[in-house]
Design a protein around this nucleic acid. Sequence first.
DNA 1: GTCTATAATTTGATAGAC
DNA 2: GTCTATCAAATTATAGAC
Lengths: 185, 185
Amino acid sequence: MEKDTTARLLDAAEYRMRRGGYNSVSFRDLASDTDIKSSSVHYHYPKKEDLGVALIDRYAERFFDALMVASSKAQTPKEKLYAFRKVYRGALYEDKAVCLCGLLGAEMAGLPPALVDGVTSFFEANVKWVSDALPDDLSKAEKYKRASTLVAAHQGAMMMANSSDDNKLFDTVTEFLISNTLGQD
Amino acid sequence: MEKDTTARLLDAAEYRMRRGGYNSVSFRDLASDTDIKSSSVHYHYPKKEDLGVALIDRYAERFFDALMVASSKAQTPKEKLYAFRKVYRGALYEDKAVCLCGLLGAEMAGLPPALVDGVTSFFEANVKWVSDALPDDLSKAEKYKRASTLVAAHQGAMMMANSSDDNKLFDTVTEFLISNTLGQD
DNA sequence: GTCTATAATTTGATAGAC
DNA sequence: GTCTATCAAATTATAGAC
C-alpha cells in the first residue's frame, strides 16, 4: 500500500514546518520533496492556508490516536501521565523536532486566521486530557491548574531540548514534574 | 533623546519576529516601519543574519538587565523566583508576545547557523540564573533539574497563553510551579 | 546614512493541455 | 492528477549617487 500524494505532501510539509515554522515552507520545496511540480501541489492544496489547516488536523488526530494507544492499559493517574509524556517524547526523539502546534502557537499572531482555531483546540484538548487523567479527588480548578502546568512544561521542555540539542533535558524535566505534581495534594 | 535608527530597526524587527518567527521579517517591512528604504536597512545590517544576531544579543542583554533590576531586593529563593517570573510576565503582558528566544528555539533547525549560539546561550544563562536562585542546600543536579523545569514551564506557559489569548494561564501555571517547586525538599 | 535603481531569486498562485 | 508555462509580487542583496 503506497502512500498517496497528499500524505507525502503532508509528511514533507510537517517535516519542514516543525523545523522552521509556517513561513519556512514553500510549495516548490514540497514539490521537489515529493517529485511533482508546484502546480500539482496547488491541485491538492489550493492555498497555503489549506495546507496549514490539513497539517494541523492530521497532526492533532495522530497525536490523540497515539495518546489513546499509549494510555490504553494505563489505570492510575501516574500511568496516564507517563503515557502522555511518552507521546510527547516520541515526537521529540523519533521526529527530532518540536511539536507542530507548539511552534505554530508561538507564531500565532503571524498565521493566517484559518489556522488559529486548530492550534487553540489542540492545547485545549491537551489540557482536558491531562485534567481527566488526574486524581478524581482534586477540584476542577486544581486539575486545570496542574494540567496546564504539565502541558506547558512538556511544550517548553521540548523547545529547550530542541534548542540545546539535548533531549535528556526533556526527560529530566517531564519526569521531575510528573512525580512532583502527583506527589502532593 | 531620540532613538537612533538601529534601535528603531531592532524594535520593529523584534516586534515582527516575536509574532511570526524569523522568516516573517523582511527588510522592506522594517524599512516601511522605520520610514527609510530597504537599502538603508542593509546599510545597518548587511545580511539578515546580522540583524538576527543583533536582535538576539539585545534581547538577552535587556532580559538579564531586567532580571537584575527585578531581583535587586530579593533575598529568599522564593523572592528571586518571583522576580524571574515577573520579567517573563512583563514580556508577555507588556509586549503582548512570546519570548524571542523561545520562538527562535523552536525554529532552531531552520535558522542561519550564526543565530544558534545566541539562543542556546540564552537558555543556558536562564537555567544558571534560576539554579543560583534555588536554596543552597540542594545538590547541583537537583538545582539543574528544578531550574530547567522552571524555565521550560515559563516558556511553555508563555506560548500557551499566547496561543489561547489568555494571559491568565501564564499566571496560573508559573505561580503554581514556583510554590510547588520550592514547597518540598 | 540615506537615496534611486536594479539584479537575482523565491514565492504563492493560475490557465490550460494531456 | 500532473504537466508546461507563466505571472505578479515579494525578498535578499548590491552598486553607485548625494
